[in-house]
Design a protein around this nucleic acid. Structure first.
Length: 861
RNA sequence: GCCGAGGUGGCGGAAUAGGUAGACGCGCUAGCUUCAGGAGCUAGUGCCCGCAAGGGCGUAUGGGUUCGACUCCCUUCCUCGGUACCA
């Protein structure tokens, strides 16, 4: 038992010194292999907990801790709940910063990366996190990227990887192409360095993510945050409509007959199409242009191209365009309408051509007004009165230029020949059906999402395993010749071409098919390829006869819980879902969704409210805080700051409160009999309370706290979880030094407190627990292998309740009543209360609203 | 513009099947204790009036529903994230 001391003596117990206890327990846990997961163990339910693996930028900042600490608490909590938890970690080790460091400081990317990884391993260990280091994956190791190459070849065989010439986004600073998803903001800047991107025509490798566009829109069976699903859905951008074929009319300069296909979501407005617009780069432009317009058209094409490179910042772009001097025939009414080119029509979307319906489309309207093109209303509100008013406005405005008619519900078609009078949705179907019957159109679906551009003109990435043979063209490197090793010796220069291009030994090779001379592909893969499948590799990081162990995959996938930032909503998370579907189709995995449940924690910003980055100088170093307060305090403070999904600017204000809390826990557990000088009530129970009452109060508080804390862990509401533990500790401290402190109730409450604290502040909990066990003469066992405690329902149940009493909705009194009383009994008590009678005066209550257990509200006139 | 999230004390934040607004913590004030302490303890702390008892006001804004609204509905204004002529 604990020493029996009844006077204050500060020297009697050790001071809480995290620096002394934390490394000791970390080492002990590692020795015991407490966090190594036996993946073959099927005796307990599995729990695959994944946190987004970090980029080894060199230093862990407080943001990493904010991401990882609560996730580690979840891992520990689930283990105490009896689950076989797999909680791996690794490094997203390829990527540009390493290469930029090489250019700037002359350090080889491999050395820079491995040195950073070493430091980050140390820092991650200092958190006391329970990562299973045996499963670690480092993506720049050949044993990892070899399988990137292997998967690439499978994709190539399956038609999921292809090479194409396309206008692509190019970052002039990083000298590299970017995937569409990696271009951000109105000014279209590089996601990594912020430089505005430009367009270049290049031949590049793509992954055919669009093949899965429809499936990616379904989120069946997965529990993901709504905002991420919305972002992905918007990014994929499915629109349903029709493709309609217009025929080019004969003119004196060309015979006509060419087909111009347009995509529209509103085929019901076809009668309102008064002109057509092609993208400036549309392939038929040159052929259709009238000689008299040739100069103007070519100048416009040149300008449009230049503009797409330079002048991207103007949001409110004035409509521009040039007529080709050619015409098309509207398939529904045979009308001849002029064909224009304009840069508001994009080649890459739909068919690169539109029918313009200026009366009902704002962009077409602006264009028509600017160039004096006809505007014809073809839909109107269903209500005749409203329709008449709109018609009048249109008639009046036609001269003034205000003829735009917005869409409305239940609108009907007008000025549309045989279709006039039908509802728009009815007409939509009818027109498409009629066009289809005549072979001039059909229903169609278009997507905004493009195929994933994976080529990168840089060194520090996975070489794309392909050679170019003079005779056989593009040839994949045979599987048995993998990996295509990244050579170590290259010159790091920013040239816009991969440094591999200058490495003759790498470049020159022979064709695996004909044995003739060939050159290697010198582009490397986007590092998002690495991160699109790493969680499968964690299961068997050293497997050398395939990327994924199918037996373990079947047992452990999909990932039960994934945690990470929402900034990857349309990059990493979309690519990963694509990989799951592609790999399932290749028979490599059995699940088509990778992550069953996703949680997006918030982001910690610098104190200035900006993203933490070295260049801004606003990074908070956790090592400093750990040295001063200990890992447990830092962990708990990050969890206590606010809701985990919220994040916010960093501020260490208040960390002292958490530190104080742990010191109080320390004091309460090790020195229950002690009292503090300066406390006038030291050693005294609250007035009128007996020891037995105090014991019960304490035990009730502990069990109620356990019930609450359990729910908070389940819901990842760590800030309120910590608050409950603080409250319980405050109750303990109130009884410290009193006879209650020596009781079994006290010991029970302390045991519960330590177990509840264990997942979040693992070191202090383990330390205090070991001391308690020793004092009780029990053999040591880790608190982290103990089961999560169960609360006693009898103690949790309330025997008396406090009811607020309102009169006309305003709080006037509170009464404490026994829990079992009938509503009538309670109302009698309430109406007899002095304060209530004073407010009521001589008025009789009109109504008494009594919500059992919640409140009583007396209504009087 | 459009889509999404959110506006609560001096500060971080609690509380939403509608039911005591401000838990917990920071900060601040006063007192106690200590050789000393940017240590510990006790009490107080939304704002206004008041010695007090007590009263009034209060969850971005204005309205509505209700016995009762931080919570539900509508208006407006701000902040953050996504998206940018997607036909």
């Amino acid at each position: 038992m604990r020493p029996d001391v009844s006077v204050t003596d500060k020297t009697r117990i050790d001071r809480y010194d995290p620096a002394a206890i934390e490394p000791r327990w970390q080492q002990r846990w590692a020795e015991l292999g407490l966090h190594h997961t036996d993946l073959r163990d099927t005796s307990r339910p599995r729990y695959y907990l994944l946190t987004m693996y970090p980029y080894p930028s060199g230093d862990l900042h407080i943001g990493h801790w904010y991401i990882k600490t609560p996730t580690d608490a979840i891992a520990r909590y689930r283990r105490m709940n009896g689950l076989n938890v797999f909680f791996p970690i690794g490094f997203d080790a390829f990527g540009l910063p390493a290469e930029n460091a090489a250019i700037k400081h002359g350090i080889h990317p491999a050395d820079w990366t491995m040195r950073n990884i070493e430091n980050m391993r140390r820092q991650l260990r200092s958190m006391g996190a329970t990562f299973d280091w045996a499963a670690e994956v480092v993506t720049c190791e050949p044993e990892y990227y070899r399988w990137n190459q292997w998967l690439f070849l499978k994709f190539l065989d399956a038609g999921l990887a292809y090479r194409a010439m396309a206008p692509v986004d190019w970052c002039p600073k990083d000298q590299v192409v970017l995937a569409r998803e990696q271009v951000e903001g109105a000014d279209r800047h590089c996601w990594r360095c912020g430089t505005p991107v430009i367009k270049r025509d290049l031949e590049q490798w793509f992954f055919r993510i669009t093949k899965y566009a429809d499936e990616l829109l379904r989120f069946d069976g997965i529990d993901w945050p709504e905002p991420v699903r919305v972002m992905q859905t918007n990014w994929i951008g499915r629109s349903e409509g029709a493709e309609v074929a217009f025929t080019v009319a004969p003119d004196e300069h060309q015979p006509g007959g060419d087909e111009l296909r347009v995509f529209t979501t509103r085929p019901d407005t076809l009668f309102g199409a008064t002109f057509m617009v092609l993208a400036p780069e549309h392939p038929l432009v040159a052929k259709l242009t009238h000689p008299a317009q040739r100069e103007a058209v070519e100048r416009y094409q040149y300008e449009a191209r230049r503009k797409s490179e330079i002048d991207r910042l103007s949001t409110e772009r004035e409509k521009t365009g040039v007529p080709l001097g050619a015409h098309a025939i509207n398939p529904v009414n045979g009308e001849r309408i002029p064909i224009w080119i304009a840069d508001y029509v994009l080649l890459g979307y739909g068919t690169g051509a539109i029918m313009a319906v200026p009366a009902h489309d704002e962009r077409d309207y602006a264009f028509a007004v600017k160039f004096g093109l006809p505007i014809r209303q073809v839909i109107a509100p269903a209500d005749p009165e409203v329709a008449a008013r709109v018609a009048e406005e249109v008639a009046r405005g036609a001269a003034g230029g205000a003829a735009f008619v917005a869409h409305s519900e239940d609108e009907v078609m007008v000025n549309s020949g045989p279709y006039s009078g039908r509802t728009a949705s009815d007409g939509f179907a009818a027109i498409v059906a009629d066009l289809q019957a005549r072979g001039q159109g059909h229903p169609a679906v278009t997507y905004r999402i493009r195929d994933w551009l994976i080529s990168r003109q840089r060194y520090w990435g996975t070489p794309i395993p392909v050679v170019y043979c003079e005779r056989d063209g593009i040839v994949g490197v045979p599987e048995d010749q993998l990996p295509v090793m990244l050579p170590r010796d290259v010159d790091f220069k920013v040239t816009g071409e991969s440094p591999l291009k200058a490495n003759e030994a790498f470049l020159r090779t022979t064709c695996p098919r004909c044995g003739g001379p060939a050159t290697r592909e010198t582009d490397t893969m986007d590092t998002f390829v690495d991160s699109s499948w790493y969680w499968w590799r964690y299961l068997s990081p050293h497997k050398d006869d395939g990327p994924i162990d199918s037996g373990l995959e079947a047992a452990w996938c999909p990932v039960d819980q994934y945690t990470g930032g929402a900034e990857h909503a349309v990059m990493h998370l979309l690519y990963s879902r694509f990989f799951a579907k592609a790999l399932a189709d290749l028979g490599l995995v059995h699940e088509r969704e990778p992550f069953r449940r996703l949680f997006n924690q918030g982001q910690i910003l610098g104190a200035d409210g900006e993203r933490m980055s070295k260049s801004r100088g606003n990074v908070q170093d956790p090592d400093e805080l750990v040295a001063r307060y200990g890992a447990d305090t830092v962990r708990l403070f990050l969890m206590f700051m606010g809701p985990w999904d919220q994040g916010g600017p960093w501020s260490s204000t208040g960390i002292g409160g958490v530190s104080r809390f742990l010191n109080r826990v320390w004091t309460a557990v090790l020195d229950p009999a002690g009292v503090e000088a300066g406390d006038p009530d030291a050693g005294l129970l609250p007035p009128g309370e007996r020891v037995a009452d105090g014991e019960r109060t304490l035990l009730v508080a502990a069990h109620r706290t356990l019930k609450l804390v359990t729910a908070e862990y389940e819901g990842y509401r760590f800030n309120t979880m910590v608050a409950h533990l603080m409250e319980l500790t405050n109750v303990l401290m109130r009884y410290r030094g009193t006879p209650v402190a020596g009781s079994a109730a006290w010991d029970g409450a302390v045991d519960l407190l330590l177990h509840m604290l264990a997942p979040s502040a693992p070191h202090i909990s383990e330390e205090l627990w070991s001391r308690l066990l020793e004092a009780r003469g029990e053999p040591w066992r880790s608190i982290h292998t103990d089961p999560w405690p169960a609360w006693d329902e009898a103690l949790v149940a309330e025997d008396t309740i406090e009811l607020p009493v309102q009169v006309n909705g305003r709080l006037r009194d509170r009464v404490r009543v026994a829990a079992g009383l009938s509503p009538a009994e309670i109302e009698t008590i309430v109406l007899g209360r002095e304060k209530v009678r004073a407010v009521l005066g001589d008025r009789a209550p009109d109504r008494v609203i009594h919500v059992p257990g919640r409140l009583v509200n007396i209504v009087v006139r």
